[in-house]
């Protein structure tokens, strides 16, 4: 028995299999689709096959790329503005989430140990309701004859309803509301591991609690801040549902444009080009994050 066991142990590449499965998954469902999108973005039509893009001259294959979509992308200011405004709203969302989430996570990590699991569950509680439903709920809260305006008017605070819906305000409320848990969770994980002795050491050396926060707590939780910001910023750039439901004409976001290109204009190469540029936009912060993480790992070893 042990012989068979040892044989299997030595001959089945179990570690490779365990690591390999997720990689295979990503290859099939992420890398290949992205390559397909890339291919479509450089063809004239969605149906252009790869073989027709390759022409043979003197026995050497030459791939003919069609950059028309990209050229159009860079000439029409609409796209540039949309990217910019996507980044803008994603950035504002991230900053607001950080401003709300950091103190939240901080006090959660400092609260009595027996309360923490419950506080953590409350953060995740919204996930039990459908995302779409929750965004719709905001809509009923913020429309002109919605709950907020009605309450304010009945209290006599305002005479006319405030126009909140379909403005940058309503968009940001929805975005911050939806992405806040993604900011809080990594920050909480990081801050709950923060060694209290560092804070004591700072106090011991004459640093007031307020300055200790800026000089010790914040730098030591940098990894959590970056992780949380990435988790908010990256999906926020490509967000489609929230701008569609809560946004307005002046809250252009790239997800919306992408949808229009695919389904209204049916211009797949163009839509693919928009998607490819968006992926590049997201890869940049990811690369920075990875660089930071590997630096950290290096520093620890």
């Amino acid at each position: 028995m042990t012989n068979i066991y040892n044989y299997l142990r030595n001959h089945i590449p179990s570690r490779q299999i365990v690591i390999g499965v997720p990689y295979l998954w990503f290859l099939l469902l992420a890398a290949i689709p992205i390559l397909i999108v890339l291919k479509i973005s450089m063809s004239e039509m969605e149906s252009t096959s790869v073989s027709s893009m390759i022409s043979w001259t003197q026995g050497w294959p030459t791939i003919k790329f069609n950059f028309a979509s990209y050229i159009f992308l860079s000439t029409d200011p609409l796209y540039f503005e949309t990217y910019l405004s996507s980044i803008k709203y994603a950035l504002i969302t991230t900053v607001i989430c950080l401003a709300i989430g950091y103190p939240f996570a901080y006090f959660m990590a400092r609260s009595p140990k027996h309360l923490q699991p419950m506080l953590l569950m409350l953060i995740m509680l919204p996930f039990w309701t459908s995302f779409l439903l929750r965004i719709y709920a905001w809509k009923t809260l913020m429309v002109n004859n919605g709950v907020i305006n009605n309450v304010l008017m009945s209290l006599g605070v305002i005479d006319d309803p405030i126009a909140m819906m379909n403005t940058p305000f309503s968009l940001l409320v929805g975005m911050v509301y939806s992405y806040l848990p993604f900011m809080i969770l990594p920050l909480y994980a990081n801050l709950s591991k923060l060694d209290i002795r560092f804070l004591e050491a700072a106090a011991d050396l004459g640093t007031s609690p307020f300055r200790t926060f800026w000089l010790v707590t914040i730098p030591l939780s940098k990894a959590g801040i970056i992780a949380g910001s990435m988790l908010v910023f990256i999906p926020a750039i490509g967000e489609y549902v929230i701008p569609e439901l809560l946004g307005g004409p002046d809250t252009l976001m790239i997800g919306r444009v992408l949808w229009d290109e695919f389904f209204s204009n049916n211009d797949w190469p163009m839509a693919s080009a928009v998607a490819v540029v968006m992926i590049l936009l997201i890869l940049l912060p990811m690369a920075i994050f990875n660089k930071y993480q590997s630096d950290q790992a290096e520093a620890k070893s």
Partner: peptide, 26 residues
């Protein structure tokens, strides 16, 4: 009063120089 902590509690994000200067800057 200053304390030398058990297992030191040196600030990991600061250099030796900055660690020693930390209290002086306050």
């Amino acid at each position: 009063i200053n304390m030398m902590f058990q297992s030191y509690a040196l600030f990991p994000h600061l250099s030796v120089w900055e660690n020693i200067a930390f209290g002086l800057r306050r």
